[in-house]
Amino acid sequence: MRVVVLDTGELDIALALGVTPIAATTPYQVGNFPDYLPLEGIELISLGVVQEPDLERLMTLKPDLILGSRLRHGRLYPLLSSIAPTVFTDKVGATWADNVRLFAKALNRENTAEALLNKIDHHCQQILAEYEIKGRPELSIVRSLQTHIRLYLPDSFIGSVMARCGLQRPSSQSGPGFARRLRSPEQIDLLDGDIVLLSEYSPKQGSLARRWQRTPFWSRLEGHLYKIDDSYWMLGIGPLAVEHILDDLEQIIHDYPIN
């Protein structure tokens, strides 16, 4: 089956379900897929960036199925569904597990999907056991971009993974919503938690956290700081990313000292 995916989340889900798409879009930079995806030896055609998929190219590929989301490409649905059967989830991110089930139905891989989610929940249980022993430290999740710093809230992908595993978040990051945006190091105290997980989006182009780290504000942080990989913690929003995240979390919680 010739499957085309329109975002990294769909790419992650398809690969996790054992289906290799023929074409996909990339986030932010044309032709650059997130590093963590197992794409060696696979020839994946780039359809440009997520915001503007190359529809002409897509049409010449004559796909059998197009996977995407209403959130990202809702306005293209009439056009896309005239090219090939198109399955859209409503949202991306926090709904990743539901999205896995929906796409599994479209790809006829429902058993694989349940096994995948069960495996993830099992891993969560193992982490949670160690987490209880360490006294349930609060995990602050920080992503540094060039123009602002984000604190991820429960309605985000990573927030939902934390909630699924039963891990605690600081009070600054437990309200409803997707993310909180900070622009000034004046707000540095909101970053703190027993464990501070810092992800940098494209550090080469100068992420804002690096600026903050050069100021005395940064020394106000008291939690244990860990750097995490932006490509699967933030960019990848599917089960393959979750597996990598859980591996990291297991190590981080293992290393955390008992109070």
Binding site: Y28, Q29, L145, Q146, T147, Y201, S202, K204, Q205, G206
Partner: peptide
Amino acid sequence: ILDQHALDAIRF
């Protein structure tokens, strides 16, 4: 246009 990282880095 080719690189959104670059745009974000110098937007302000």
